[in-house]
């Protein structure tokens, strides 16, 4: 086990180096420079002041020197300063946005797993019945409906027509003066629509996955054995079948780790939630190199860590993998 762990961790390093290279190349390949974005088509800017801006950001150096500088800073966990006019440290900008994206995604993730797993089990157990079909239709509607459209409809209905829920943002004006409990209630009302709609959209994938692994397990011989020895159906399904059917779900959980800080541009834009998705999108649009590279590197590293964790959990849960025999 220790050997396996060591090997996996060592393998991370070359991969991370590759990630930094790709992150660097990707954003530098895009046409346009941060300086252009701030100054293009403005008559009040001379060529000299543009050159000065380029020098200020270090863009006048050759590419490989820029990469080297960035990498050596990165090794010291310094992501550099944003190229946006505010010139703040990238870490500060990311840290400012992570809490809201993270908490929103964790709530949505708990809801998603909490709903999709039972839905998948029910669909599998009641395979090909009306219930199964109904569930399929429900989750696929959620999958197929464009979330931004659904979001706008819900905002209009619950926000403008009924006036039950706030439209966008995180807090009402003046919520600072409310007592703590009322403040949480205010926040909960603001988060209700985003969380519910995000969950509805992502139910299909996981529940279908759960349904198929469950069906696979239910057709195994040991399930027939369990039934043959007279166990109650509940015990067969929840004690014997579910344990094995849940194994592949661990992988999916591992994949969700980077998504937790990823955030969604469309969603955050519509609901005016200042999250990571928006930050990244604006960074790309403004060619804010350090910010974009920073987010890419963090996202990629989290994917690696997520995979590693998933594999470790797998090994922990499944002795066949732990002992290197398949």
């Amino acid at each position: 086990m220790a050997n396996y762990l060591l090997k996996r961790i060592l393998m991370l390093f070359p991969m991370m180096l590759g990630i930094t290279l790709i992150a660097f190349v990707v954003i530098h390949l895009a046409p346009g420079e941060p300086v252009d974005m701030q100054t293009s088509m403005s008559p009040k800017v001379s060529a000299a002041s543009k050159a000065r801006l380029r020098e200020f950001y270090g863009l006048d150096k050759p590419l490989h020197v820029q990469y080297g500088l960035w990498l050596s800073n990165l090794a010291r966990f310094d992501f550099g300063r944003s190229f946006a006019p505010d010139n703040r440290p990238v870490t500060e900008k990311i840290v400012e946005r992570i809490p809201i994206t993270l908490s929103l995604n964790i709530i949505a993730l708990i809801l998603e797993f909490g709903l999709a797993i039972p839905i998948g089990i029910i669909a599998a157990v009641h395979r090909d019945t009306l219930l199964d079909r109904g569930i399929s239709v429900f989750v696929f509607v959620g999958f197929a409906v464009p979330t931004f459209w659904l979001a706008l409809l819900c905002m209009y209905f619950f926000g403008v027509k009924l006036n039950w829920l706030p439209i966008s943002g995180l807090h009402s004006l003046g919520s600072e003066q409310l007592p703590p409990l009322a403040r949480y209630w205010d926040l909960a009302k603001h988060l209700f629509l985003p969380v519910v709609i995000a969950t509805f959209g992502s139910l299909a994938g996981l529940s279908r996955y759960m349904r198929s692994t469950m069906l696979e397990v239910l057709s195994q011989d040991y399930i027939s054995t369990a039934r043959a020895k007279g166990l109650r159906e509940r015990a067969v399904i929840y004690k014997h079948a579910l344990k094995n059917a849940l194994l592949p779900v661990i992988t999916l959980l591992g994949f969700s780790l980077p998504a937790m800080i990823g955030g969604s541009v469309i969603f955050e834009t519509i609901f005016s939630i200042p999250g990571m998705g928006q930050l990244f999108y604006m960074g790309v649009m403004a060619r804010d190199y350090p910010l974009v590279m920073g987010i890419l590197v963090i996202g990629a590293c989290l994917t690696l860590v997520g995979n590693l964790l998933a594999d470790l959990c797998y090994a922990f849960a499944d002795p066949r993998i732990r002992h290197g025999r398949g």
């Binding site: 706008l152 905002m155 209009y156 926000g159 403008v160 006036n163 706030p166 439209i167 966008s168 943002g169 004006l173 955050e268 834009t269 519509i270 609901f271 005016s272 200042p274 928006q278």
Partner: peptide, 20 residues
């Protein structure tokens, strides 16, 4: 004077109608 950041123009219009 409160300057709210609402990146989507449809959302902004609904905020206007709902008094936000």
């Amino acid at each position: 004077y409160v300057y709210r950041i609402i990146p989507d123009s449809s959302t902004m219009y609904m905020e206007l109608k709902s008094g936000g």
